[in-house]
């Protein structure tokens, strides 16, 4: 039951954000500053997820070359930079992770 409540709450929050200026407050326009701040949200949120996944395997900081996730992640970043295609970083990153000892 608590799981259902959790999911429905998440759904309401997500939907309310999407509906905000489209259906709830249609006459409101974002200020330029708000607009700028929102542009950084996906960058900041995703980076805050990515970096710990790379450098904290098992919960402890590991910046050595023996950290497969760090190496695979760095290669995936390079691949993403070059290819601009969202699939290649996943494919090549996983192959590197599997091949590393």
């Amino acid at each position: 039951m608590i799981l259902w409540l959790t999911i429905i709450g998440m759904g309401i929050i997500t939907y309310a954000i999407r509906l905000s200026l489209l259906g709830l407050w249609e006459q409101v326009e974002l200020t330029a500053v708000t607009h700028r701040a929102l542009k950084f949200v996906p960058i900041a949120v995703l980076s805050a997820i990515i970096v710990p996944e790379m450098v904290l395997p098992g919960g402890t900081l590991d910046l050595s070359l023996g950290n497969g996730r760090l190496i695979a992640g760095l290669i995936a970043i390079a691949v993403a930079w070059k290819s601009k295609n969202a699939l290649w970083p996943v494919a090549i990153g996983m192959i590197v992770l599997w091949l590393l000892p």
Binding site: P42, I49, A76, A80, A86, L87, P89, V90, G93
Partner: peptide
């Protein structure tokens, strides 16, 4: 780890 890699492709 595909989660991090997927997000790398997005960010």
């Amino acid at each position: 780890f595909t989660l991090a890699l997927t997000f790398i492709g997005m960010v």
